[in-house]
Amino acid sequence: MSTLVKICGLSAPKTLLAAIAAGAEMAGFVFFEKSPRHIDLETARTLGLLAQGRIARVALTVNASDAALDEIVDALAPEMLQLHGKESPARVAAVKARFGLPVIKAIGVAASEDIAASKAYEGLADMLLFDAKPAPDASVPGGAGISFDWDLLRNIGAKNWMLSGGLDRENVVEALRRTGAPAVDVSSGVERERGVKDAEKIKAFVEAVRSLS
């Protein structure tokens, strides 16, 4: 089975179409105002319709309330929800129950203890996303182009998980060889400037991943 690819932080029709043309399986849309990749609900409706039936839509939120999630789900009609904040296992379960959608739970990783802590989400989240742990004073919890020690993911035991954090077309092959990740997520690694995706970089990233198939 080929590695699943998620292009995250898409915010314009052109680069969404580039992700679809490249063969990525998932398109991530950020709903977090502090992020340079944040989109409003009107943009979400436009991009959601463009993506419908062509690529799985993932709504990324950070510690969002039920009311905020209601609006996002109504606008984007996502196939999955990505919880990228400090949501507890109980909150993950509550979101799944409310919306009936698969949930990706992001786990910030800096040490082996973080991998161990992720066990609390197994059986609740449908997929775990391992990302570099942000600095304590960071304004956003991801998308900073920072990687972590991939060797921490050896023998993690989780069946459905995704590797994120500092990936780009130059290092994704090595990352996959070292971790055996069944899925990868990229954001800043396919941008020409912070928050602005590049169609050619999206294509090159997906091609690099597919070179291992």
Rank of each mutant, 00 (worst) to 15 (best):
L129N: 01
L60D: 11
E87S: 07
S65I: 08
K105Y: 06
D126R: 00
R54H: 15
E122Q: 14
V58M: 14
I104C: 10
A94F: 12
D114E: 07
M127G: 01
I104T: 08
R91W: 10
D74H: 12
G123R: 03
V62K: 01
D126V: 02
S65T: 14
R54C: 14
M127N: 02
A106H: 02
A94M: 15
E113T: 07
A111P: 00
R98A: 15
E79P: 00
E113H: 03
A64M: 04
S118C: 04
A56L: 15
G108S: 08
V62A: 05
R98S: 15
I55N: 04
D66W: 10
V95Y: 09
S118E: 02
Q52W: 06
A67D: 15
V58P: 05
N63K: 11
L83I: 06
D66P: 04
L124E: 07
Y121M: 06
A90Q: 14
G100T: 09
G53R: 08
L101M: 12
G100C: 13
S88D: 08
K86M: 04
E87K: 07
E71D: 15
L76G: 05
V103F: 04
P78T: 03
S65Y: 05
A75N: 05
V103K: 00
A93T: 13
G100E: 13
E79S: 12
A51C: 12
R57C: 10
N63I: 09
S65K: 07
A93H: 09
I72S: 07
L124V: 13
A110S: 14
G108A: 08
M127Y: 05
G53T: 08
L76F: 04
D66I: 12
A120Y: 00
N63C: 12
G108Q: 02
E71A: 15
A116N: 04
E87M: 06
S88Q: 06
G100V: 11
A64Y: 00
E79M: 09
A59D: 05
D114K: 01
P102F: 06
Q82L: 12
V95P: 07
V58S: 13
S112H: 09
L69K: 11
P89G: 05
Q82M: 08
G123P: 01
F99A: 12
D126A: 02
G108Y: 00
A77N: 12
E71H: 09
K105M: 09
A68D: 14
E87A: 03
A93P: 04
H84C: 11
P89L: 08
I104E: 10
T61R: 02
D131V: 01
L76I: 09
A110M: 06
P102A: 11
K96T: 08
A93L: 15
E87F: 02
A67E: 15
D70P: 07
L101W: 06
A116G: 04
G123E: 03
Y121C: 02
A90K: 12
I107N: 00
